[in-house]
């Protein structure tokens, strides 16, 4: 079965300057989240890699090591002047690393209720920091839902998170930030998936012409 090139209709043919703007915003949000992680763990948190890419849905579900890769995810929907989904996604071993830094837990086997609520709280704080940076930068009021947690297949979690974007096309602008903790290694990925109309709104606010070649 042929797969479409990652340049469907909506939000994907974004001019380079617009993508650079999103990169700047994404970096700002993720750096603020990394700062929160530092405070939380008492170690230096860093933004290792920050990317903004238009990706086909099937590339997105492969992003974290395959659609069936088991991941811990904290999900929040944000609404207001702009809307979208925000996720904090970690491979299981990275989640265990964070749990171990914050408590005496972090062993093998299934996550305990305590461990899961700890991860939910960490996700809550990181997503909150990211959204705050975003809303400060854009001077917009954004409201985030109370984040929810799931431990499941990456494909199942990401494809659900793309359903709203799916109404407009088969690609999404994925703003991702990979976090790490000094001496601990990888500490999860933040994903911002703005709704397509919100991308246009961001460009408008920042004075970037809608279909500009700037």
């Amino acid at each position: 079965m042929s797969r479409e090139e990652p340049q469907g209709r909506s939000g994907s043919l974004v001019p380079r300057a617009h993508l650079s703007l999103l990169r700047q915003i994404g970096r700002l949000g993720a750096e603020n989240a990394a700062l929160s992680l530092s405070f939380l763990l008492g170690r230096k948190g860093e933004l290792k890699i920050s990317q903004v890419l238009p990706l086909h849905f099937n590339e997105i579900t492969e992003y974290l090591g395959g659609a069936e890769e088991r991941v811990v995810t904290v999900f929040a929907r944000f609404e207001g002047n702009i809307s979208g989904n925000m996720l904090y996604v970690l491979h299981e071993e990275d989640a265990r690393g964070i749990i171990a830094s914050l408590s005496d837990d972090g062993g093998e086997g299934e996550f305990s209720e305590m461990e899961l609520s700890l991860m939910q709280e960490v996700g809550n704080i990181l997503i909150g920091s990211y959204i705050t940076a975003l809303s400060d930068f854009l001077a917009l009021e954004l409201k985030s839902s109370v984040p929810a947690l799931a431990v499941d297949m990456a494909g199942a979690i990401l494809s659900f998170s793309l359903s709203e974007i799916g109404r407009s096309g088969d690609t999404a602008i994925v703003m991702s930030g990979g976090l790490s903790i000094e001496g601990k290694g990888a500490s999860g990925h933040l994903f911002l998936l703005p709704d397509p109309q919100s991308l246009e709104k961001i460009f408008e606010i920042m004075g970037f012409p809608a279909n500009g070649n700037s």
């Binding site: 109370v146 984040p147 929810a148």
Partner: peptide, 16 residues
Amino acid sequence: AQMFSLGGTGDSLLKI
């Protein structure tokens, strides 16, 4: 499936 439950808000999205 309903992958997440977010007490109250965003219901139509979650029930997709």
